[in-house]
Amino acid sequence: MNKIWKIRGFEGKFADEELIKMIKEGRLLASDYISTKDMKNWIKIEDSIYQFYLRREKYETI
């Protein structure tokens, strides 16, 4: 697995699959920031295409 994701508040880097798993499990929130070395900025999960994996009811409460 190619560990490319940095998650604000977490140590180390994460693979795409790990990021998605953490979002699905609710361990990452809509308000969490993610980025990679190729991205210019951090982005909130809720503002990224990865909001697709957020639980709908959780996402709406934030």
């Binding site: 991205m39 210019k40 982005i43 503002d47 295409i49």
Partner: peptide, 9 residues
Amino acid sequence: SIDEIIKNS
């Protein structure tokens, strides 16, 4: 940029 793809817009 990759940011343009990743951004949900």
